[in-house]
Every structure is written in C-alpha cells, then in structure tokens.
Computed example of a mutant assay.
Amino acid sequence: MRIEAYNQVAQLYQTSNNKNVTQSAKTNSMGRDEVQISSAGKDYHTAKAAVAEAADIREDLVADIKARIKAGTYDVSPDDFAEKLLSQVGSI
C-alpha cells in the first residue's frame, strides 16, 4: 500500500513538471516583452534627475546669515518666529 502511494505522488510530480516545461517553452516562443514609457514619465524622470543634482543648501544665503550672526547684527523677530513655528505645528 505504501508503494502505491509513492507511485501516485511520483506521477503527480511528473505531470506537474511536464506542464511547467511546456508552459516555459510556450512563453519563450511567444516573443519578447516590451515596455513603453509615456512622455509624462519621461518628464518626471528628467525633473527628478534635476532635483537630485541641485544642492540642498543655498550657500549664498547661509554665508550671509553666518556673517550677520558673527557680527551680532542678525535679529529675529519673536512674532515672525512664533508665526512660523505655529504654521509648522499646524501642518503636522
């Protein structure tokens, strides 16, 4: 009885392996897949590349602020600071 069960399982594996071989042969003979990217996708890729190349820090503004802090002339209005802080917290 045990041998019969083994034979049945072996037959199942042989049939599924044969199906996989014939299916892979069919997909290979059908041709190649092609991908077409829309113009919007191309534009998005171009814009993303431009942003990646741009500097994260605007050195001219940072240098100006650093010089004003060092000279002691950099003044921050408490009202402006509070307004920007609240706008940041409000967007969270």
Rank of each mutant, 00 (worst) to 15 (best):
S38E: 07
M30H: 03
R58Q: 13
A67E: 11
I65H: 02
L86S: 06
S16F: 10
T46E: 07
H45M: 11
R32A: 15
R58M: 09
A49H: 00
S29D: 14
Q11K: 13
A67R: 09
K70N: 12
A67D: 05
G41R: 05
S39W: 06
A63N: 03
S29V: 07
K84D: 03
I37R: 03
V21R: 14
R68F: 07
V9W: 07
G90W: 02
P78I: 05
E4Q: 14
H45N: 11
N20V: 14
A82V: 04
P78S: 00
A49W: 01
D60I: 05
A47V: 08
G41W: 03
K42Q: 07
Q8D: 12
V76F: 04
I37W: 02
G41H: 02
A50S: 07
A50H: 01
V62F: 00
K84S: 09
K66A: 09
L85R: 04
E34L: 11
D60N: 05
N28G: 04
R32F: 12
A63R: 02
G72I: 04
A55H: 11
V35H: 08
A67I: 03
Y6H: 15
Y44R: 13
F81C: 01
K42T: 03
S39G: 09
S16N: 12
P78M: 00
E83A: 08
N18C: 13
S91W: 04
A63V: 03
E83G: 02
Y44P: 01
M1N: 10
A25I: 06
N17G: 15
A10L: 11
N20S: 14
S77N: 05
S87C: 03
Y6G: 01
D79H: 05
A82E: 07
E59I: 14
S29G: 04
K70S: 06
A67M: 04
K48P: 03
S87Q: 11
A54Q: 09
N7I: 07
G31Y: 02
V21L: 14
A10Y: 05
V9Y: 07
A40L: 13
L85V: 09
V76T: 00
S16G: 06
V21C: 10
A25L: 14
I69N: 00
E34R: 06
D56P: 05
F81A: 10
L61A: 06
N17M: 15
A25T: 10
A71W: 00
V89P: 06
K48D: 09
D64A: 04
Q14A: 15
